[in-house]
Amino acid sequence: MKKTILRSVALIAAGLLAVTGCSANAKSGGAADGDFPSKDVRLIVPWAAGGSGDLTARTIAPLLEKDLGVNVIVENKPGANGSVAYNWLAEQAPDGYNLAMMGVEVATLQFMDYDIKPENYAPIGQGSSGPGAIAVPVDSPFKTLDDLIEAAKAKPGEVTFSSPGIGSVWDSPAAGLQQLAGIKLTSVPFDGSAPSIAAAASGKVDFSIDAIGSQKIQVDGGHLRYLATLTEERDPNNPDVPTTKELGIDLQNASWVGIMAPKGTPEDTVKKLSDAMEKATADAGYQDVIKSSNLVPTFKNSAEMATFIQDEAKRYGPWIDYAKNNTK
């Protein structure tokens, strides 16, 4: 009895092996410098599978494959706010075969006592962005941003807002808002954007500061109302909502997703990858996926990205310090 089972299992397994081959083990082959790429490229996602960053990676990978002519294998390496993957990437050979997705954390984790320095990476490009907005519950007494600021001035620390976690891409601009408007707010950090926005939608906190696209669900459902967007110009999807800049507070912020390589990757390799990414982000299919995730397809090349990341670090450093020193 047992024998027959063992035998049949062995047969099936052998058959499957024969059919599928050992394709997953294609680790062989060394590359000379000039002809990049000559083997599979690994694209590490520092977040768990399923989020919008992961989707971006999985959408862009086949497009990069088409352009580079080699496989681009997407792997998730989540952990410790992405720092596990970022640290891993910093230790890889700078040959362009190991890449990672990145978000603003590359610039900001250093302010949260993580050993992540933006100088250790060579950015390839940016793929999408998610500009932010301030939204209040529909029945909130705050009709304009000024109402909110007045209320916060009258009772410092009593106006609360929800954020996806301290030091995060949306808690930090709230620190900027407090500094620019000269007010004191209370941050209630949640574990991610969805619960944080839901808390504002059910009126548990006074307002939400998050990506326009993430708040859209609750705005469309009649639970939240935008007060202002954190954009340079009015959001084309919400032309009636003023920007903070129009209201006298020059505050802009957007979450973003990009790709990077370890520091020291040869310039022509970076250029090749950056060009491939530019083509991929212009692809209609890619643009559709990003737009339906309520994000904006954006492209910045390697050089633009390097300055951009430095600017982000300069902006976020003081914000995070402010937020940490003003926690209630």
């Binding site: 989020g51 969805a194 459902g221 009649g222 339906s292 309520n294």
Partner: peptide
């Protein structure tokens, strides 16, 4: 469901009060 929300948005199904 956290994972599924991402896929649903791509299909044009926006989970939320209006769905």
């Amino acid at each position: 469901m956290a994972v599924m929300i991402g896929s649903m948005m791509i299909w044009g199904i926006q989970p939320g009060p209006g769905l």
